[in-house]
Design a binder for these strands. Sequence first.
DNA 1: TAATTGTTTGACGTTTACGTAAAAGCAATG
DNA 2: CATTGCTTTTACGTAAACGTCAAACAATTA
Lengths: 128, 128
Amino acid sequence: MSKSYTISDLAREFGVTTRTLRHYEDQGLVTPARDGINRIYTARDRVRLKLALRGKRLGFSLNDIRELFELYDLANGERGKLEEFAIKLDRRRAQLAQQREDVEVMLDEINFFATQCQRLLTETELGK
Amino acid sequence: MSKSYTISDLAREFGVTTRTLRHYEDQGLVTPARDGINRIYTARDRVRLKLALRGKRLGFSLNDIRELFELYDLANGERGKLEEFAIKLDRRRAQLAQQREDVEVMLDEINFFATQCQRLLTETELGK
DNA sequence: TAATTGTTTGACGTTTACGTAAAAGCAATG
DNA sequence: CATTGCTTTTACGTAAACGTCAAACAATTA
């Protein structure tokens, strides 16, 4: 018997609202079972939520994320669409590569400003 | 006399609509001058647009981006708020660091699937 | 048992980031 | 000079991602 979670367990753990979790269910990102009427989340749901939130932090839409999940699932499923799968994966890869570059550039910029800023603060400190 | 651009120049170059450029002006991301009634974008506007689009790719809101611009400007302006500036910069840095990590993890995952996928495709190729 | 706490399903509201259409103006071109 | 092309403002529309009630039920706890 593996761990299971209530809706507010996960909400608390990941810092989202229960509304968000229900919304994600509507969008097919998680598929909690039911204990009577109450939702009961499995470890799998938990993982999916974690992945979804990471996707969100990277600017992916819920739809993007759902598609990714479907692709992941498909990888363990039937073939034939494997080439299509490969193509979509490659698009993602390109997008992420771009994003990595974006992050690096932006970090450089911010670091530049931060350094500049620290210098000014230090100088002023000395000039006191 | 440095280069200047019309609204569709920039739209074309960056693959956005003119509506988007006007919207970004409404949001204070660019501040084109006017030639009579027509907008005339400077190199500075062009740079800002480029930065804005990068921000967008990273999932920043237009408001986030505007705040960043204000921070950048502030860095060349008056002091006193420099510490606040430093603090905000550090938040951005943390966010970007998180994002970098996210990207790496996601790239690893995708690469795993891609490799798996290629293997399957190759095997099938051979089995023909 | 009464009250509190957590859950459910609607369902309408809100924000962001534009899309889209309308009506009108300048400017070059055939 | 009429058409074509690019521009302007104004303004309503929309999709995504939830927020925010409301009304109702269930399980604890006082």
